[in-house]
Write a protein that binds this DNA or RNA. Structure first.
Lengths: 144, 144
DNA sequence: TTTTAGATTTAGACTAAGTCTAAGATCTTC
DNA sequence: GAAGATCTTAGACTTAGTCTAAATCTAAAA
């Protein structure tokens, strides 16, 4: 059940406030993870975040990284972007926007807002409500 | 390098023609896989296709299923739809359309064509060309 | 028709992202 | 501080997908 905090600039709030506003109980590990994750807008994998958080001495386990990213995603604080079966990014900017993925370089690039499609409730399958709308446009380097 | 055969009704062509038109050498295994895959419009996983093809006695190996689906995707005959890290569908209808994914039921549902966004070359990152544009809208069952 | 070289297929080992388990730690409230 | 809930953890486990190296197939040359 994703909330939609429309957190265009939540990165400026203390992470404690971000979490409590979404009804997330603040723990030491969640604070550490949130500090690392929301320090800036970034596209990061679970593994990269694990490394970042434990850079000097282990502080948070792999299971907690996954649990916490899942929790944050449920609450709408981060967005999961599934590129393929073995590449999932977490986007610390959860505001409404989408992505270009360069298959040659592996870069994930933000899409300009005007390119984002809108889906109305009436467009959805009967009896459903929207959770997330993800657009990934795969591009490759132009061959001259 | 995905081609775009715009194969709205390639399912009516003999599979041999579909493959040769895309420059794919026809082998026994590729014919078996293509027959099963393009018999109808379907969203199917690699594993399901492996089971379908080998229903009575083994005919095609797992490696060949993956290799062939990858080849067909490269040539634009099927579309890969990445739902999450452990769920990838192959869509035997490769024509331009997108999907709703119901997280409660696991159903993947075709999106009406008018909802499909368009991306112009000028919208893409500099020096890149579009490969595929995938839209997956995640929905959940409405709670009354 | 045999040879040859390249392409294809295969079994099964392997990889790695992510999940699970069950025990321990931590917090809340009485 | 005891009870009970929630959270964290190490490390085992699962599983989709990849890799490898040998065997097979194909087309066409000799």
């Amino acid at each position: 059940m994703a909330q939609d905090p429309h957190n265009h600039s939540q990165k400026n709030k203390p992470v404690e406030q971000m979490l409590t506003e979404q009804g997330i109980f603040v723990t030491a590990q969640r604070r550490i993870i949130a500090e690392a994750l929301f320090a800036r807008n970034q596209h990061i994998t679970a593994d990269q975040l694990l490394g970042l958080v434990n850079k000097n001495s282990a502080k948070v386990s792999k299971a907690t990284i996954y649990n916490t990213l899942g929790l944050f995603a449920d609450k709408g604080l981060v967005r999961e972007i599934h590129i393929n079966a073995s590449k999932t990014f977490y986007d610390s900017n959860a505001s409404r926007h989408h992505h270009f993925y360069n298959v040659d370089t592996g870069d994930l690039i933000d899409m300009k807002e005007r390119l984002v499609p809108l889906f109305l409730q009436s467009d959805l399958p009967d009896g459903t409500v929207m959770e997330t709308a993800d657009v990934v446009v795969r591009v490759r380097n132009q061959t001259l």
